[in-house]
């Protein structure tokens, strides 16, 4: 018989942006090895962390994520040679911006998890879940979500017209 797991008052939603070659594969390995970790995380797979636009992180918070994880290959191990370096630089700058607009950086984690590091994946997810659970829900962003216009797409005829006029 399993012991009943402790029920928590608040279960955070965590979204993880991962690259397919390292971290996604590492999470697969955690499964194949039947490791156990909290069920709070949802994965979005990218070819490379280099593809991850910081806007996705904002978007995730706006959509109700209480924590965001970004994880890819270790420096030097990028399947695309340097994508993770670009990601690292981009996110270093982006963290500052987030801090400026009032997001507690404890809610956002970057890590390197290789295809072989199932144990590390479990650790990272468990720690982040516990930390965010203790912090409680993230409210700051949800109200802003409605007004946001996705960059790049010109969804209304007015916008399209304005664009053509330039």
């Amino acid at each position: 018989m399993h012991h009943a797991k402790p029920k928590h008052e608040f279960e955070p939603k965590i979204i993880a942006f991962v690259c397919t070659w390292c971290t996604y594969a590492g999470a697969d390995l955690a499964g194949t090895s039947r490791m156990q970790y909290p069920a709070n995380v949802r994965l979005v797979k990218f070819p490379c962390t280099g593809r991850i636009d910081p806007v996705f992180i904002l978007k995730a918070f706006q959509q109700g994520a209480d924590g965001v994880l970004v994880s890819g290959c270790h420096p030097g191990d990028c399947h695309y040679m340097a994508g993770n370096f670009h990601a690292r630089r981009r996110f270093a700058a982006f963290r500052k911006l987030l801090e400026f607009i009032g997001v507690d950086l404890q809610r956002l984690q970057f890590s390197w998890v290789s295809a072989a590091e199932a144990g590390k994946w479990v650790e990272v997810v468990t720690e982040l879940t516990e930390r965010v659970r203790a912090m409680g829900p993230m409210r700051e962003f949800k109200d802003l979500a409605l007004e946001e216009q996705w960059s790049g797409s010109l969804t209304t005829p007015e916008l399209q017209e304005a664009y053509e006029a330039i």
Binding site: P47, C48, R51, Y80, A82, H86, S151
Partner: peptide, 18 residues
């Protein structure tokens, strides 16, 4: 890899499939 897409300031590159 899509690094170009995340970098493009005018959002003019798109990675098919992502």
């Amino acid at each position: 890899c899509g690094t170009c897409q995340a970098t493009c300031p005018s959002k003019s590159v798109e990675l098919d499939g992502y």
